[in-house]
Computed example of a mutant assay.
Amino acid sequence: MLNSRIKLRHLQAFLEVAKRRSFARAAEVLAITQPGISKAIRELEDILETDLFERTAQGVALTQAGLTLLRHAGPALRALEEGVASAGDAHRGDRWLRVGALSTVESQLLPEAIRRWHAAPGEPSDVGVNVVTGSSAFLLSRLRRGELDLVVGRMTEAREIRDLAFEHLYYEPLLLSVRSGHPLAGIVPLDPARLGDFPWVLPPPQTTLRQQVDSFCVRHSLTLMRQRLETLSLPISRRYTLESDAIWVAPEEAITEDLAAGRLCRLAINLEAQGGSVGLCVNACMQPTLAREAFCEVLREVSAGRGSGSGAG
């Protein structure tokens, strides 16, 4: 049974501080004073008889007890907010499926799954899809707080996945590609040392995809040019690559059509042996909805049609 001394304001204050990593920013969002939010957190810690935050050079960080509370309080409060909103909007039928999408599934898997899901008769026609993009750390943290229903993409290397439930769908390799007519196009075998003579388009630091690039560079003693573009945006990466001599580190599905059309060429060197595990991730603490379960089933069907094997993530 929930301790009667714990109030909604305590949990709201806790979640905002956990999200913002700052008492001052959390107070600003909740439109209360900083002493007020500090008091709410102190009362909650007294009730639970444990510290929830610890101060760091960057602000505040969750303790282990704080992480445990976040795992449960985020989805619970989000479910309460949705229940209140659903009650008020029942006459309009406003319902949404909130999906976090990593760049590895933005080009083919997710658009096709959404199209099939909305084309199916019945339930999906009444449910809108809200897609949020970003890094795995950003999306998984939102999933843990109950702000997303699921996250789709390549994420098994992410530290933030921890106690979230991941289901493998298929393996997706990162490829090195260049524009048609590039000086390295068609060279077989390709000396890895030559890759350092050109600018690169690659994922930003602190992302799981960037870890694979860094490992590749270490294996081949490769130092990249300082002239490089770091982004998760596929449209920006594609345009820059097509109009320059850059080498693009891209998920296979993002460049399949350009490879087939001859606009891009795959370099004759493997960035990684097998590729990463692409799958769907949910928060087991969140009550599953019919819409989420139906959409996950469509994701499985679309993934099976890719002809890729399945296995442990």
Results as ranks from 00 to 15, higher is better:
Glu106Arg: 10
Gln64Arg: 04
Ala120Gly: 07
Ala73Leu: 03
Ser107Cys: 13
Leu140Phe: 12
Glu43Pro: 04
Asn130Asp: 14
Ala90Ser: 13
Val129Gln: 01
Gly59Met: 04
Asp89Asn: 11
Ser86Pro: 00
Asp51Arg: 14
Arg115Ile: 02
Gly134Ile: 07
Arg98Met: 06
Leu67Ala: 10
His72Ser: 09
Gly128Cys: 06
Leu70Pro: 05
Gly88Gln: 08
Thr104His: 09
Pro124Lys: 01
Ser38His: 11
Val60Met: 05
Asp94Met: 05
Gly134Pro: 11
Arg78Ala: 15
Ala137Thr: 12
Val84Phe: 13
Thr104Ile: 04
Val127Lys: 00
Pro111Glu: 12
His91Gln: 09
Pro121Ala: 12
Asn130Glu: 13
Ala65Ile: 01
Gly122Cys: 07
Arg116Gly: 09
Glu106Val: 13
Asp89Ile: 00
Asp126Asn: 11
Glu54Pro: 02
Thr104Met: 07
His91Pro: 00
Arg98Asn: 12
Gly93Thr: 01
Ser103Ile: 10
Leu109Ala: 04
Arg78His: 12
Gly74Asp: 09
Gly88Ile: 00
Gly122Thr: 04
Trp96Thr: 07
Ala76Pro: 02
Pro121Arg: 02
Gly100Val: 04
Glu123Phe: 08
Pro111Ser: 13
Pro111His: 13
Ile47Lys: 04
Thr63Gly: 13
Thr50Met: 11
Ala79Pro: 05
Asn130Val: 06
Gly122Ile: 00
Asp46Ala: 15
Thr50Arg: 12
Leu44Thr: 08
Glu81Arg: 03
Trp96Pro: 01
Phe138Asn: 07
Glu49Ser: 14
Val60Lys: 02
Glu49Met: 08
Phe53Val: 07
Ser38Lys: 06
Arg142Ile: 00
Glu123Tyr: 11
Leu102Cys: 08
Leu110Lys: 01
His91Arg: 05
Val129Lys: 00
Leu102Ile: 09
Ser86Asp: 15
Gln108Phe: 14
Pro75His: 08
Asp46Glu: 15
Arg55Gln: 08
Glu82Gly: 07
Thr104Ala: 15
Arg115Asn: 07
Ala120Lys: 03
Ala120Asp: 14
Ser103Arg: 12
Gly66Asn: 10
Leu44Gly: 09
Gly134Trp: 11
Glu123Met: 11
Glu106Cys: 09
Gln64Thr: 10
Val99Tyr: 01
Leu77Ile: 06
Glu82Leu: 09
Arg95Ser: 06
Trp117Phe: 14
Glu43Phe: 06
Asp51Val: 03
Val60Thr: 10
Ala119Val: 01
Glu106Ile: 06
Arg71Met: 04
Trp96His: 03
Ser38Cys: 06
Asp51Glu: 15
Ala120Gln: 14
Ser136Ile: 01
Thr68Val: 06
Val131Lys: 01
Thr63Cys: 13
